[in-house]
Design a protein around this nucleic acid. Structure first.
Lengths: 225, 225
DNA sequence: AAATTAATATGATAATTATCATGTTTTCAT
DNA sequence: ATGAAAACATGATAATTATCATATTAATTT
């Protein structure tokens, strides 16, 4: 099993602020796990007794609304931590996490890391910075959801995925989402999401290869109103 | 001028985790300020070089969307801290803050408090807890915006204000918002917000005294679909 | 107190989005 | 490879929400 001290993934998240000793200790108690595409990592309401460090793959965080629809709130990628909030508040998770790819993650039990959070100010400051960033992103998300049309939101989602997660060798978006996933990010009906994607295709903004999507006109997508 | 060590307001926020010495030092450099209703506390994009501790009053945090409409993202009340995020990230504020009441706030310069955040783990853990809470609230807000109708969102906003900020002696909501403010919380056109409020009034869910609103049927509001 | 301005209110209509129906394609298990 | 199931697609229609126009009322200034 890999050692945290030597793992490069931590450079991307707040674990980088841990001391070598702390990392060695954590390395000794972490468990590595592979998660298949579509598998649930944790459920809404579940108590997560630790954090996941994502070594590979992507997952979606979603919340079930009262009308029975899922809303995707965030995507967590390779390098990110998953379940940070449950380290801090003792509440159960308010979100569900589902793998969008095959994933590889390391699970660090809360009991092992919580003391570091209290003792190592560099570490807690790093976590704070990440949360501050998440909060800012959440604000932006709220404004977009509230003030923009479905078409605009979907265009922005495509741009976001393109910029954040990149493309395959054939230029298609590397994260493969179902039309339903798109609808659940944008907060619309699946049919509406499909319709808008079809329209983008007709307008030459995107092209599709099966369910794969390729951005054909990034600037055009930015101009969508 | 009041002394932080003796101020009870801090019990409501993370400043309570500071040591007496830290509080005394902060007390010496803080400035107290009154802000009139409608006054801008800080602008979007402005660099805030510290945090505000709200001693009295309420303000709204909003963000201008690209289409020129304001979206209210959060309300900050007596007891809360304002501008926490700028303590942590060195970025300028992504939100504008405007007083909804006459306010009294203490401003603590960043330079004085940033070291405490790095040195006092109890304090930084408290800040972390608050941010974790804010983040959870933001998630819930996103889901509501994305998945619920204007009518539902407005009903929930009324309930939220009722529960969080209470009522005047005559039972009207203690926070006086314009119809435009309601629209900017809910993310709709002002006319639509007005229309829905009129409908609620007709249905006996609320009553109005001028622009003051009184909740007449809380359970009914909860059932709005 | 009169005049001006801003906020609230409501109607008419257009635009957006949801819902239901139905057909097609893709994926997956056997 | 084949049948079943899931995902995708599109039309028809209804519901929701935005926009523009125009009153009405309240607040503010002079």
């Amino acid at each position: 099993m890999g050692k945290c001290e030597q793992c490069i993934i931590k450079q991307f998240n707040s674990l980088k602020a841990l001391t070598k000793e702390e990392l060695v200790r954590i390395s000794g108690c972490k468990t590595t796990r592979t998660i298949k595409k579509g598998e649930v990592i944790f459920e809404e309401g579940e108590t997560i007794n630790g954090v996941y460090c994502v070594k590979d793959g992507i997952c979606k965080l979603s919340k079930l609304s009262e009308n029975g629809k899922d809303q995707i709130v965030k995507m967590v990628v390779k390098g990110d931590l998953l379940g940070q909030r449950s380290l801090i508040s003792n509440e159960s998770s308010n979100l569900q996490a589902v793998a969008l790819n095959d994933m590889e993650v390391c699970f660090i039990p809360k009991s092992e890391i919580i003391a570091d959070l209290q003792k190592n100010p560099k570490f807690s400051f790093e976590v704070l910075k990440e949360m501050a960033h998440d909060l800012k992103e959440a604000d932006d998300f709220i404004v977009n959801m509230a003030q923009k049309s479905v078409k605009q939101r979907l265009a922005e989602t495509l741009i976001y995925i393109y910029n954040s997660f990149g493309v395959n060798p054939d230029n298609t978006l590397s994260v493969l989402l179902s039309r339903e996933d798109f609808a659940n990010i944008v907060g619309t009906a699946t049919e509406s999401a499909i319709r808008v994607l079809s329209q983008f295709k007709k307008e030459g903004l995107i092209s599709t290869v099966g369910k794969q999507i390729r951005i054909e006109d990034l600037e055009g997508l930015k101009r969508v109103e």
